[in-house]
Amino acid sequence: MTMQPARRKALLIAAAMGGGAALAVVGKPTRRLADERPPVKLEAVFPERFAGWQVAPTAGALVRPSDETGKIYGIYDQVLERVYVGPAGERVMLSVAYGTEQSVGLQVHRPEICYPGGGFKVSELTRLTLPIGGRELPVTRLFATQPGRAEPITYWTVLGDTVEGSSRSFRWRQILSGLRGQILDGMLVRVSTLDTQLDRAYAQQARFANDLVAAVDPAMRVRVIGKAAPV
């Protein structure tokens, strides 16, 4: 007898819920990676001056997208928001969010999710790798727009010591680490500019990101771009 589509869907949902409950019980984390290594202080990790860039003292309001709830970054222990001015007067916005507990129930808020919540339209979503910090780093690009604001964005997320290129791989690694009894910390690094010319904006962001990572203390660099994948 052929199963009806509605019944099949209900059984799949029930199975998924049961699997999630089992993981919650069997893999309840008991150990935090953040407690086993030096603490992260974002203001110290990311320098205010480097390679001709310096922080603009009165431009912080340019960084955060509109958000009436005020809860976009509520899950994080620390958030750093700055606007940097480059050698030619160009401006780049940096937003970094760090959490000591990136458990399955405490997900990183990716721009393609949080920007629409702030009234933006998101398009041109692309996954790629960029030469940052002496290696090819998985990043995501997208274009967020609303009346009066056009914001190309480049960002990446680090879970533990690994850069995760997609939300699926991020969540899967959270689950696997939970099964091992470990809670990984996580960081989201977002670089953006106000520009309607995407090629120009992304080239500027790539240059800024590479300069920024090169200026981070080597001892903390793994927290910002993870470890290089084994060859």
Rank of each mutant, 00 (worst) to 15 (best):
T58M: 10
A21Q: 04
G70I: 01
F143L: 14
R37S: 14
T100S: 12
R223T: 09
E136K: 08
P131L: 08
I183R: 12
V216S: 15
D199C: 00
G119Q: 08
L198C: 04
W156L: 02
T126A: 11
S169I: 10
G74W: 02
G133Q: 07
Q107T: 06
V224G: 04
L125E: 14
Y98H: 03
T30W: 04
L12F: 07
P87M: 09
W172Y: 10
F50N: 11
S192T: 09
R127M: 11
M93V: 04
L80A: 08
L176Y: 03
V92E: 00
F46G: 00
L33M: 14
L80T: 07
F143K: 01
K41C: 05
P38Y: 02
E112Y: 02
G165N: 06
F170W: 11
V40R: 13
G160Q: 03
I72K: 11
I75P: 05
V222F: 07
V25P: 02
K121T: 15
V222H: 09
E43T: 12
T100D: 04
T157L: 03
T2Y: 09
M1A: 13
E43P: 01
Q205V: 12
E90N: 15
L23Y: 13
L137R: 04
S192V: 11
R149D: 14
A215T: 07
R37I: 12
V158H: 02
T129K: 15
G70H: 01
A44Q: 15
C114S: 10
P57D: 08
L23I: 15
R91D: 05
V26E: 13
I132R: 06
D195R: 10
L12E: 08
D185T: 09
A206E: 15
R82F: 05
L12Q: 07
D185L: 07
A51C: 06
V96M: 02
V79F: 02
I72C: 08
V63D: 05
Q78S: 09
R91W: 10
K28V: 03
T145D: 11
F208Q: 01
K71P: 01
Q107A: 15
M17S: 06
A88Q: 13
E81P: 00
L125I: 15
V79N: 00
G89F: 03
V55W: 01
T162G: 00
Y202K: 05
G148R: 14
A150T: 03
L42K: 09
D67T: 05
A203Q: 12
A229H: 03
S169P: 05
G27V: 03
L106I: 01
E81T: 07
K121Q: 11
E164Y: 12
